Simulated assay, not measured.
Amino acid sequence: MPTTHNPNTLDYTAQKEDLLVFARYPELGKVKTRLAAGIGPEQALQVYRELLAHTQAVAAPLAVRKWLWLAEAGPAADRSDTWAGYQPLPQPAGDLGHRMQTAFAHSFAKGAAAAVIIGTDCPGLTTAHLEQAYTALHTHDVVLGPATDGGYYLLGMKVVWPTLFENKPWSTSAVLSETLAAAKLVGLQVHLLPELRDVDTAEDLWAWQESEKQSS
C-alpha cells in the first residue's frame, strides 16, 4: 500500500488496521433488488455503480490494508472494476453474521490489530467517519455506525466477538438494538458514530437525492 497520505490522518498502516468491504460485482437484476422494485433494475444498477464509486472514494485516503469480500457473481456480472489496492476474497456461505465473523477472523489471523467492516450502501459515509472509527477503537472494544433503518453501516473491533454475530435478525430494524444488547451483556465498551441512511429502497433514494439538492 502507498505510504504517503494526508498528514492530518493517523498512520493506519503502522497500526496494522484493516478495512473490510462487502460488495458484489454490478449485475443487472442482481444488485439493489429492493430498490429495483421501486425504480426498475436498470436505474437500480446505475445507483449501485454510484454507491460503489463513492465507497472507493471515501476509503481511498486511508493507508490501511484493504480486503474486498465479494458475493458470488453471475455470468452477466461486470468485472471490469479491479478495485485497485484491494485484496479480493469470495464471501463464504452462511448468513450475514457468519460471513462478517469470517472476514474479521481472517484479518486478525493475518495480523491486523483492528478491523472495520462496511458495505456499499451508504452515500453519507465519509473518510472522516472511517477515521473516527479507527480512532474510537483505541479506547473502545467495538465501534458501530447506526443506520436509520435500525441496522448499521459500519462495525469495527479488535478481536472477534461471536456474540455480535450469532442469532441476529439480519435485514430487520432490530439488528442494531440486539447487537448493542449483546455487547452490553458481555461488558463491551461501544462507541457510536453518527447515524446515516443506507440506500435500500426508492424512499431512501429520494431522501438521498433531496439531501444532495439541499447541500448543492
Rank of each mutant, 00 (worst) to 15 (best):
E72Q: 15
R65Y: 01
A77S: 09
V64Y: 04
W67G: 01
A59M: 08
L52G: 04
G74Q: 10
D78V: 06
A73H: 14
A73F: 10
L68C: 02
A59D: 01
A53V: 15
D81P: 01
A71D: 15
K66I: 01
A76R: 14
D81K: 08
A71S: 15
P75A: 15
A73I: 08
L70C: 10
S80A: 06
D78P: 02
V64E: 00
A63D: 00
P75N: 13
A76I: 03
A71V: 08
L70P: 04
D81Y: 08
D81C: 08
T55I: 07
R79I: 08
Q56E: 12
L62W: 02
L68Q: 01
V64M: 00
K66A: 03
E72T: 14
Q56F: 11
A57K: 15
D78A: 05
A57W: 12
K66S: 03
L68S: 04
V58A: 11
V64L: 01
A53I: 14
Q56V: 03
P75Y: 14
A57T: 13
W69E: 00
L52P: 01
A59Q: 06
E72C: 14
Q56R: 14
E72G: 11
V64K: 04
A59I: 13
R65Q: 00
L52C: 07
A63E: 03
V58M: 02
D81F: 06
P61R: 04
Q56I: 03
A63N: 13
A76Y: 11
L68E: 02
G74C: 13
L70G: 04
A76M: 07
D81E: 11
H54G: 09
Q56G: 01
A60D: 11
D78M: 02
K66W: 10
A60Y: 12
P75F: 13
W67N: 02
A63Y: 01
P75M: 11
V64P: 00
P61G: 08
A53M: 13
A57S: 12
L68A: 07
R79F: 09
A71F: 13
G74K: 13
A60M: 03
A59C: 10
P75V: 09
V58F: 04
A60R: 15
K66T: 02
L70K: 13
D81W: 12
A59Y: 07
W69F: 11
W69S: 02
G74S: 05
S80L: 07
E72I: 13
P75I: 10
T55M: 05
E72S: 15
L62T: 01
V64F: 01
D81M: 12
A77Y: 10
T55Q: 04
A71R: 13
S80R: 07
L62Q: 02
A59G: 05
A60G: 05
A73P: 09
A60I: 09
R79C: 06
A76G: 09
A57N: 05
G74W: 15
P61L: 11
P61K: 06
L68Y: 06
W69H: 08
L62S: 03
L68T: 06
L70H: 08
P75R: 14
A59T: 10
G74H: 13
L68N: 04
P61E: 10
Q56P: 05
L62Y: 00
A60P: 01
A53T: 15
E72M: 14
L70R: 06
A77G: 09
W69T: 05
P61T: 07
A76V: 09
Q56M: 14
G74N: 06
P61I: 06
E72N: 11
L70S: 03
K66R: 09
A57C: 06
A77W: 07
W67C: 00
A76L: 12
